[in-house]
């Protein structure tokens, strides 16, 4: 164990040194911004800063952004910290995990507040004050939409849970929504995933080509699709034991499912590799400036 710790420490220190030398020589990881004045009001001009590729760093209104440069290095640290999980649990991963939970929970709550509570609930209930404050784009003279009182009332019942007594009242809104989902999904699933899927499977089991000759491949294809769907359903059949003929058919169904899963697995690999490639490209391109495939730093 100690030897391993030693090796890791050595690797880390070495890596850090290489990074330092590289950073001093290349000056990588810098982020530049452009100043854009979007409006000029009494209190002074309203200025936005937009990130620009480093190749534009010599332009007049472009400058180095210190917070974003720090951010770039933190982002790299976050990337490496999470990646370190594949080596096993370690303090850096634990730190990143804690930050991740906190920031993401906070971010999604902020998003829910502005997008849901302000944009929907408050806009519906008190459009006037909202127009004067957060949502000046609202039309004038909108009437309150009183239907929003219903979710509001249910939310209050929901939060009743926090009180010491009568927490069971919180079950009422839950029951409402579970019932609503059940009813709503029941029909929409049967419409889209049941009838539509059957509809799509209605195929001729003998196929002729346009010039009226027998199409062997087309026929095999359709028979395989229709047969496959039926075999798969036999596997899911619950009321008959999987023995004899049914057992044989169900086994065919298992084969089909395995082929399906194999295909899905193989197909997905690509997507996952692309994600890793994206992260590595971030490290190599945006942070370390080792490569420049999109020509962000021409002339630097």
């Amino acid at each position: 164990m100690q030897r391993e710790t030693l090796i890791w420490t050595a690797v880390m220190v070495l890596g850090g040194l290489v990074l330092l030398v590289h950073a001093v020589r290349v000056g990588n990881g810098r982020v530049y911004v452009r100043e854009v004045t979007v409006a000029d009001v009494k209190s002074g001009p309203v200025v936005h800063y937009k990130g620009v590729p480093p190749s534009l760093h010599n332009e007049a209104d472009v400058s180095l952004s210190v917070p974003r440069t720090i951010g770039m290095w933190i982002a790299a640290l976050c990337t490496l910290g999470i990646m370190s999980f594949v080596l096993g649990d370690n303090p850096l991963y634990k730190l990143m995990e804690s930050i991740f939970v906190g920031v993401s929970a906070g971010y999604l709550m902020v998003a829910a507040f502005w997008d849901e509570i302000v944009q929907n609930l408050l806009k519906g209930l008190v459009p006037g004050p909202m127009r004067d404050s957060f949502l000046p784009g609202l039309e004038e003279g909108l009437n309150p939409d009183l239907t929003y009182l219903a979710p509001l009332a249910m939310s209050v019942m929901m939060l009743w849970r926090l009180s010491p007594k009568g927490a069971w009242i919180a079950r009422w809104p839950l029951a409402f929504f579970i019932g609503a989902t059940a009813g709503f999904r029941l029909v929409s699933y049967l419409e889209a995933d049941f009838t539509q899927q059957i509809n799509n499977t209605i195929l001729p089991l003998i196929v002729y080509t346009a010039d009226k000759s027998f199409d062997v491949w087309g026929t095999i294809r359709n028979v395989l699709i229709v047969g496959g769907v039926l075999l798969g359903l036999v596997y899911f059949f619950f009321s008959v034991p999987h023995r004899g003929v049914v057992g044989g058919l169900a086994r065919g169904g298992v084969w089909l499912l395995m082929i399906t899963f194999g295909a899905s697995f193989g197909y997905t690999v690509m997507g996952r590799i692309a994600l890793l490639a994206d992260r590595l490209q971030f490290l190599f391109d945006d942070w370390l400036w080792l490569i420049d495939p999109t020509m962000q730093r021409v002339g630097m």
């Binding site: 209605i202 195929l203 039926l230």
Partner: peptide
């Protein structure tokens, strides 16, 4: 058991549909 009735319905509809489609072809 109720779900299985649904599966039988699928099989029946597929048999009729594919049968008719083949006949058309």
């Amino acid at each position: 058991r109720g779900q299985d009735v649904g599966k039988l319905l699928v099989a029946a509809l597929l048999l009729i549909g594919c049968g008719a489609a083949t006949w058309v072809e």
